[in-house]
């Protein structure tokens, strides 16, 4: 019987093709003020219904992904905006807990995105986090937009130094850049349309996570 482990890795290359987007933080080093804001942001995200984690070193990222993925049924993966090293780290972490992954490599997006809908994980690069409201900003990056929207599970990554205090901190970015689109994500998709009962998971992700790192993501 032909049985083998086949891996699905579907990587949206948009961010690289477009060139690296300038980030919200001016300083790359992560000082204690940035770290505190990062924690504040994560606490707000947690209240908004995200799974949250703060990781100091790249190696620790793998354990967060394997821990979260252990609870999720994942058969396909969509990654956007992350460096080769991070993609590898995440991918390895996932296959350590998910042995049934099939490999399929495509040069372009299929017209039918259903494969990336159920039992799928989207991992994306967050442009900035908003501490006051617990919002993840995806800016001008259609790959991250898809990876944060279509799959059943999603995880956004950003550096502690990329967390800003409130929406107003974004004003200058919006003025300086001729933005094509932006999304601020403040929780998994949800509705209260039936008898005002809160239900998580409507047309967007059913579960969402966010990881703030104490190291630089784009190296």
């Amino acid at each position: 019987m032909f049985m083998q482990r086949v891996y699905i890795l579907y990587i949206v290359m948009a961010a690289w093709l477009k060139g690296e987007a300038p980030r919200a933080s001016a300083t790359r080093g992560i000082d204690s003020a940035a770290k505190n804001l990062g924690y504040e942001f994560l606490e707000k995200c947690r209240k908004n219904g995200f799974k949250t984690a703060y990781v100091e070193r790249p190696e620790a990222l793998a354990s967060v992904f394997s821990e979260w993925a252990a609870h999720w049924s994942i058969k396909s993966l969509m990654i956007a905006g992350l460096s080769g090293f991070l993609k590898e780290t995440i991918f390895n972490a996932l296959i350590s807990v998910k042995k049934e992954i099939t490999c399929l490599e495509l040069p372009d997006l299929p017209s039918d995105l259903t494969l990336f809908r159920a039992s799928s994980l989207g991992v994306f690069r967050v442009y900035a986090g908003v501490a006051e409201t617990g919002g993840l900003i995806v800016l001008d990056d259609w790959g991250s937009n898809l990876a944060s929207l279509i799959p059943e599970y999603t995880v956004g990554l950003l550096e502690a130094g990329e967390v800003v205090s409130d929406y107003w901190a974004l004003t200058s970015v919006l003025r300086q850049r001729d933005i094509g689109g932006m999304v601020i994500i403040s929780g998994p998709s949800s509705t209260s349309d039936i008898e005002l009962t809160h239900v998580i998971g409507v047309h967007g992700p059913v579960e969402a996570g966010v990881i703030v790192t104490g190291f630089e993501l784009d190296e």
Partner: peptide, 8 residues
């Protein structure tokens, strides 16, 4: 404090 999505 915020809805799940703000789309610009």
């Amino acid at each position: 404090d915020a809805t799940s999505y703000i789309t610009v």
